[in-house]
């Protein structure tokens, strides 16, 4: 079994300096995480609860990696519904 701690949820305040890409299900979020890992970008899955989407899964990564993340996910055919910046 892969390391369970790669599945982390957003239960409290957002972590500053990170960006969350909201994707859809836990499956698609895990697939995105693995695609990024293959490109040496560390990310973890997160869950958001919003009026816009209800419950939705995504990935959290360092904000500075956003251009690289966008490129990798686009190449992998993984659609991002929204990027949520968590800056102060």
């Amino acid at each position: 079994m892969k390391t369970p701690d790669l599945f982390k949820q957003q239960n409290t305040q957002p972590e500053y300096g990170f960006t969350d890409a909201l994707i859809g299900s836990a499956t698609h979020a895990a697939r995105a995480r693995d695609a990024l890992a293959a490109a040496a970008i560390r990310a973890q899955t997160v869950k958001h609860s919003t009026r816009a989407y209800g419950c939705i899964y995504g990935i959290r990564f360092p904000a500075a990696q956003k251009p690289n993340v966008t490129y990798v996910l686009d190449r992998a055919g993984i659609a991002v519904r929204e990027y949520v910046e968590s800056t102060p």
Partner: peptide, 22 residues
Amino acid sequence: AGGNPGHGSHALSDAAAQMVYD
């Protein structure tokens, strides 16, 4: 991993989700 996969917000749900994905 006794949580509900893809439904919860806790460690047991996370572990179940990972196992299902695997």
